[in-house]
Design a protein around this nucleic acid. Structure first.
Lengths: 222, 222
DNA sequence: GCGCACCAGATTGTGCACAAGATCATGCAC
DNA sequence: GTGCATGATCTTGTGCACAATCTGGTGCGC
């Protein structure tokens, strides 16, 4: 479905983006209520814009709304995060396969650039930068696959488990292991080897799901 | 992300549902403009409710909105419908696999009931009833899989290519072929055979995609 | 002490009126 | 006849005020 144009108002999109960032950064914690007037004051916008932004986020699954009661940050359980990763694996496997089949010099250069960013982030043990580069890699693969629906579907699923992913990525030794798998994925795509690219991705996805399960075993989140 | 509660207003949801039906029934054709005031008058609602409904549909990809210009029914191209079917195949394959692994007597009875509805619709050559039963089957499989994210993802993808699917289903001989594949899928799930269920589904999905390609070869839609 | 009705507060839901922006037709200059 | 500036008209965008509804606490009755 391509990129959404001027969905509602420009202002509402800005507020939605700010809220997304806030939720991802745990500035707003799961269960926290989000009264429209408070957000309106905080962002210097009208209640209507906030309202539209909340509707958007509710549709994405980031917040929960109840009639005449209000919006609150939705708690995403570990099992749901695992389900999410499972669906993402299916779609991303398709993406990297297609990307490997269609790769050109320009695309390969882009992927290798992201690979260098991953390497740099891992060297510095910068979890946030690594997460950003990982996100960039996923987006690039989706775009290079030329599969619009896959791209949109992934975009929608990505926002949901940012919080949990951060916790998995923070576990000791994760960055090094993730880096090697991501590099294998990038190189496989660049040399036009769909099977190897898919395998590298699947390997990483399973590791993510295992990490999420370990998280769930240690402490329940919702 | 479970079921969305009182997303915005009750009224807005009703209007959105009515618009979805209208678009599916080609009452509103692709490209047709949807001025807020006209819809408000038509549904006897306020402009605000219509506005919220349009925002919802825009997020689903059914309508396109441009700032200060208005909303219009989005044209879904054949290539996009094929991409859509491709992603659905991936997720539905997971669903029927899980459903076959977890099937119980109650679920089997439900699926066989849908099977009878399919048979009846095919006997009467009732394309609409067949489409409805097919939709019910997809929903049942998603629910019986116990995979919430897959269920939501499919729900979202389903609304998009209802129009094209109708055209494919209307082609001569389709109902009989589809019926036999669907019955194979149902029986495989009911006897707890994940591999066979997945295979039946994949077979059907490929037939749908081939049908869509044939449609595209005959006449472009967008 | 317990349960229920009721009231106060807070929060969302919505109609109305006006402002802002874009499209299209018109008319003028060249 | 062609190109461009200009204004009319339509459509969406938004602030404001009030209505509807839910929640939590309080007081009365038993």
């Amino acid at each position: 479905m391509g990129t959404k144009a001027g969905q509602t108002a420009v202002r509402a999109d800005q507020i939605a983006a700010a809220l997304r960032r806030g939720i991802r950064a745990s500035e707003f914690v799961p269960g926290q209520r989000l009264p429209e007037v408070d957000l309106a004051e905080r962002f210097g916008a009208s209640r209507r814009a906030v309202r539209d932004a909340l509707a958007q986020l509710a549709h994405e699954g980031l917040v929960e709304r109840r009639s005449n009661i209000g919006a609150s940050v939705r708690a995403i359980s570990i099992p749901e995060a695992i389900e999410n990763a499972e669906i993402r694996m299916l779609v991303e496997t398709l993406c990297v396969t297609l990307a490997a089949e269609r790769i050109d010099a320009r695309g390969a250069a882009e992927l290798r650039g992201i690979g260098r960013a991953l390497q740099a982030a891992a060297d510095l043990a910068d979890v946030t930068a690594f997460a950003e580069a990982t996100s960039a890699l996923a987006r690039a693969c989706a775009r290079l696959s030329g599969h619009g629906v896959a791209q949109d579907t992934l975009e929608r699923l990505r926002v949901l488990n940012a919080r949990h992913n951060f916790r998995v990525t923070s576990s000791p030794g994760w960055l090094a292991a993730a880096l090697s798998r991501r590099m294998a994925q990038i190189e496989a795509i660049c040399r036009g080897d769909p099977a190897a690219a898919a395998e590298a991705l699947r390997e990483h996805s399973f590791a993510v799901m295992a990490g999420l399960r370990a998280l769930g075993a240690g402490k329940e989140d919702a």
